[in-house]
């Protein structure tokens, strides 16, 4: 059913994850992410979809006692990004993330977008200016903020802040972008803007998005994964998952009988 011709950008191989204290949050997940496609993760709260997403940029490393098993392999270089010898900072340089709640830094709009470049040691003004403009355009925010780039980012609306966070994540030219319920704190218009933006962004990069909103998954994604209790229950192209799911559980969740 899956188009085998689409190249794989990254894939989880037998991925398990244990939180500090032993909670077995992911159980042997095998799942490819296709290049320049949007993959949506759906499932009831606590099913492990955010946990899965946060494995991709090693966010779990920030908290002591967490443990990964299995692999996440990036293509084309075949790097297992969960390998101990791989620096999580290197991983985060290639895979960026947009969070559930907009989390701009207490800095100007410009400095927020330039942040990723600055921490990489880039201080060339001309280069930063160009990159910031490009990222703000890429996040469909340029027209609204071009004349006030030195304003504090907190002065933007919630939807604008989230687009700023997308611009920030975009500025470093990542290969994969992770979205953790990116619209759950936004109103419907801001949500529509973000969804439209995601559809444009997939031309440049690969997207993995966690969503609670079934319609959103159906609208924006090319592939959908349904997770339950830390296991990948069903994975396939979005049309198939939503119209002809093979498993009863998936159907129940999608139709709202459960969850």
């Amino acid at each position: 059913m899956m188009t085998t011709t689409t190249p794989v950008k990254a894939e989880a191989r037998n991925l398990s994850f244990f939180y500090n204290g032993g909670n077995h949050a992911l159980k042997g997940v095998n799942m490819p992410l296709y290049e320049n496609k949007i993959t949506a993760l759906i499932g009831p709260s606590g099913c492990g979809k955010s946990t899965f997403l946060r494995c991709f940029n090693r966010m779990h490393d920030l908290y002591p006692g967490n443990k990964y098993e299995g692999q996440i392999v990036m293509h084309p270089d075949n790097t297992n990004i969960l390998e101990k010898s791989v620096d999580p900072i290197e991983v985060r340089m290639r895979i960026s993330m947009v969070f559930q709640k907009p989390n701009p830094f207490p800095k100007s709009i410009y400095e927020n977008v330039a942040y990723g470049l600055r921490v990489r040691g880039e201080n060339n003004k001309r280069m930063l200016d160009d990159k910031v403009e490009e990222a703000l355009k890429g996040a469909a925010l340029w027209n609204e903020v071009k004349d006030r780039q030195q304003d504090l980012a907190f002065n933007l609306s919630g939807g604008q802040q989230q687009r700023l966070c997308i611009a920030r994540a975009l500025a470093t030219d990542p290969e994969i972008m992770l979205f953790d319920e990116p619209t759950s704190a936004l109103d419907p218009i801001a949500t529509a803007n973000i969804e439209e933006l995601m559809s444009e962004l997939k031309n440049k990069l690969t997207i993995l998005v966690v969503t609670h909103n079934m319609q959103q998954a159906a609208r924006v994604s090319d592939y959908t994964a349904y997770m339950y209790l830390g296991e990948l229950m069903e994975y396939g192209d979005t049309d198939t998952i939503f119209t002809r799911p093979t498993r009863k559980e998936t159907e129940d969740y999608i139709t709202g009988k459960f969850g």
Binding site: F105, Y115, V119, A169
Partner: peptide, 25 residues
């Protein structure tokens, strides 16, 4: 914590996060 996570997610080190994000915040 979400602000620190934002900084780490951009590839910042602990020191950069402390000085450039947490302190101004």
């Amino acid at each position: 914590m979400s602000m620190r996570e934002g900084s780490y997610a951009m590839g910042a080190t602990r020191f950069q996060t402390a000085i450039r994000v947490v302190t101004p915040a």
